[in-house]
Amino acid sequence: MHRFLRITVLLTGLFAAFSIYAAESQQSVPMTEDSLGPLVEQPIEFPHNRHAGDADKGGMQINCMYCHTYARRSAVAGIPPLQKCIGCHQSIESVRETPRIKKLFEYWEAKKAVPWKKVHDLPDFVRFNHERHIKRFIEQQNRPFQEVCGYCHGNVKEMTVARRSKGLTMGWCASCHQKDHTVVAEGGTPIGTQAYWYTFYKPEVEDASAGVLKAKGPNDCWRCHK
């Protein structure tokens, strides 16, 4: 009897445990190109479209990296210091009295940081490096910055507050790393003054006669899981 009770309790426990796991895992993001994240409410509804959008849509066409200045220098992109916002806005009289800008100046005068909420986040065991991607695609290959940032962040220039629009799962990352990307010379070198291979392997030469070399992104576990 006691034994039976024990086993029942254990089984119940196991079942409960599995249900917790199953319930959690249902949330896993499908590996599709586009996968909308939650709508995140921010302390100030920052209009990305106004700042970075195209001129014909009323945008200022500001380079992403003008504000997200750490992205090309560090693993993390960072959020611009408040000082940066104020730097421009103190001399833009036309919008000075709008509710959002008033709120911005309130933070500034109190010397308090704006408590932005994270929109793009990866698990702690993944090390994504902004700098590497920017070097690879913007600096070395001269692709348009909005396209490059957009690989992962979506079409931010048409958003107000940013919203995650890609899966950012491992499968999603790998789907891009498995693609053949054009490289400048054999072996991924020389690009600028820096020489490195993109993978452990020599890039597959596709249509070498046309002088087009292609290589896949790094595929070693430790690139991201340090």
């Binding site: 917790i20 210091p81 933070y107 308090k112 994270k118 929109v119 698990p123």
Partner: peptide
């Protein structure tokens, strides 16, 4: 067992904190 389950589900997307965690930038 329940602890292990919670830990396992922790390996999933629940460790992603978009929309929850605050990102504090420098004022200056």
């Amino acid at each position: 067992w329940s602890g292990a389950a919670v830990a396992l589900s922790g390996c999933g997307n629940t460790s992603i904190e978009d929309g929850k965690e605050t990102l504090v930038s420098y004022v200056e």
